[in-house]
């Protein structure tokens, strides 16, 4: 249930709805992404950003304005834009002599930067340079991480999680088998190179139920070099990874079904206090005024007797 703790009430119903939609929810939808240009983006970085945007399309926004800022020195602009667009993922491209073709990928938690990783694009071939059939937008891709470096290097470990976060799209329960069309491969070598390749999956006959897989490269193909990283502290990351109770699928206790499919519940009743039980009231059992008077006198006498004994002592 959404909670709104504001001092100023929203004036319009629409404003209220917008505010409520921005409130944290126990089960979140797909993360929104903003793709923006940093300081002097080169042709290559702009194309990379565009391709990232194309891959992420229904859940992304491409901001065309150039922004003179450096995310690693001052991330306030990103935090502001993420707040404005209600986004949790961002990609920024820039270009300088020191860091040519720079791509910064990152994510936020509660509109504060959680992880930020800087990658230098050394080789790049855009999606448009591969002249073949592309995939439909909004497909959930198969993510392939190759190489032991993804596990051994701490930065790459977080980058793996970041790439998964970026491209996994949405948690789904069912998936159409014919819709498995896209494969994203991330290969990390020991010298901090990350090869990103994107393929279209072709399902061929194999003479069995499971098809034979063939891949066709559709781009983008990027050779990234890992540069600077700014990773969240472990406790913050742990806090961000907390799974709410609503999302946990626990076993429901004391519920069973019988042979006919009707639901049975076992409940626990505490011991009943019989002395305080209210039985049926009857006129015949009601005390007459005389009896009540006698009772009162008796009570008084008892009290007085107790008092006397106390005073004598």
């Amino acid at each position: 249930m959404p909670v709104m703790q504001r001092i100023k009430k929203p004036t319009t119903r629409k404003g209220k709805k917008v505010l409520l939609s921005k409130e944290p929810k126990p089960i979140e939808g797909p993360k929104q992404c903003i793709v923006m240009q940093g300081r002097n983006p080169s042709e290559r970085t702009r194309k990379i950003l565009k391709d990232i945007y194309d891959l992420k399309k229904p859940d992304a926004a491409y901001l065309t304005r150039k922004n003179d800022f450096v995310p690693f020195e001052d991330a306030s602009l990103i935090e502001k834009m993420c707040n404005k667009k209600d986004a949790a993922l961002f990609g920024v491209g820039s270009h300088s002599k020191k860091r040519p073709h720079n791509i910064v990928l990152g994510r936020t938690f509660d509109y504060n930067v959680l992880d930020m990783i800087e990658l230098g694009a050394e080789n790049f071939k855009s999606m448009s340079e591969f002249q073949n059939m592309k995939i439909l937008t909004g497909l959930k891709p198969c993510l392939l991480f190759n190489g032991p470096a993804w596990e051994l290097n701490e930065d790459l470990k977080r980058l793996k999680s970041l790439f998964t976060d970026f491209f996994h799209r949405e948690k789904v329960e069912t998936i159409r088998l014919q819709g498995l069309e896209h494969a994203l491969s991330f290969t990390a070598t020991d010298n901090n190179m990350i090869y990103v390749r994107s393929y279209r999956i072709q399902l061929k006959k194999s003479g069995q139920r499971t098809p034979r897989v063939e891949l066709e490269e559709i781009g983008p193909s990027i050779d990234f070099k890992l540069r600077r990283t700014k990773l969240a502290a472990n406790d913050l990351y742990k806090e961000a990874c907390r799974v709410p109770r609503e999302a946990k699928s626990g076993v429901k206790k004391n519920i069973s079904r019988d042979a006919f499919g009707s639901k049975l519940g076992r409940i626990h009743m505490g011991k009943q206090d019989i002395n305080k039980l209210q039985t049926r009231k009857m006129k015949g059992l009601k005390k007459t005024p005389e009896e009540q008077k006698a009772m009162r006198l008796k009570k008084k006498a008892k009290k007085a007797a107790i008092k006397n004994t106390v005073s004598k002592d």
């Binding site: 409130e23 944290p24 929810k25 509660d110 998964t164 329960e173 088998l177 961000a240 907390r242």
Partner: peptide, 25 residues
Amino acid sequence: EAIVVRLPPPTTILPRAKPVPKPKP
């Protein structure tokens, strides 16, 4: 008319975008 498979719940836990909401006081 589409053949779908039921996927198991994902095992990789990804960070949330916003903190878990607290119950309304």
